[in-house]
């Protein structure tokens, strides 16, 4: 379906492109929000990602999955942005995050009672804190693996790294999170 939409978009069909935006905006936003921990920056990344997709539609090779392609663009933009950040900035970002997790940015998918909701949001907070404390190179892998549910092979395609490297990073990332979450589980 994405292949068809990209072809239409390339021919100037704005509605086809809008459909692609609808399909992927939340996924890219989720990815960027977890990577950067900042709502505004995440929206910037989403916008920039789609702009790049639009500009490079003619270079999209439909032998590869569209999702792989757009995740690569989005992830690279996030990594670039993290690199450009001054060390002090991440402290601000962590402060910003407190407000973010407290609820209104997250919508639970199931109907839950207020009590479980509280518990859920508390668990979420702990997990997100743990993810945010991961070094960047592990963070991108773990977010792609879990938040986007990509296979190891797909992550390797997105990041342009061998599967063995991805595997090692997932293992180390999971160990890291286990240690962070361990006492709370």
């Amino acid at each position: 379906m994405e292949g068809r939409l990209t072809k239409l978009a390339l021919k100037g069909d704005q509605r086809a492109f809008a459909e692609l935006v609808e399909l992927y905006k939340d996924k890219i936003y989720h990815l960027a929000y977890r990577m950067l921990n900042n709502r505004h920056e995440a929206e910037d990344i989403v916008q920039e990602t789609f702009l790049r997709v639009y500009r490079n539609l003619d270079r999209y090779d439909d032998k590869q999955k569209f999702s792989t392609w757009i995740y690569r663009i989005g992830t690279n933009l996030c990594i670039d942005r993290l690199r450009k950040r001054k060390p002090t900035y991440s402290l601000d970002a962590e402060m910003n995050d407190q407000e973010g997790i407290d609820g209104y940015s997250m919508i639970p998918s199931d109907n839950v009672t207020p009590e479980t909701e509280l518990l859920l949001s508390e668990t979420q907070r702990v997990i997100y804190e743990a993810i945010d404390s991961l070094p960047v190179k592990y963070r991108s892998v773990m977010i792609l693996r879990y938040l986007q549910d990509l296979s190891l092979q797909e992550i390797s395609d997105v990041l342009g790294m061998p599967v063995t490297t991805i595997k090692t990073r997932v293992h180390r990332g999971r160990e890291f999170l286990r240690k962070k979450l361990g006492p709370k589980m």
Partner: peptide, 21 residues
């Protein structure tokens, strides 16, 4: 726990699509 996060959707601003377009 990590996989369960997948079902918590972060929601972007409503006007994001129009801003992108």
């Amino acid at each position: 726990l990590m996989f369960s996060l997948m079902h918590q959707n972060a929601v972007a601003s409503d006007d994001l699509v129009s801003r992108i377009m």
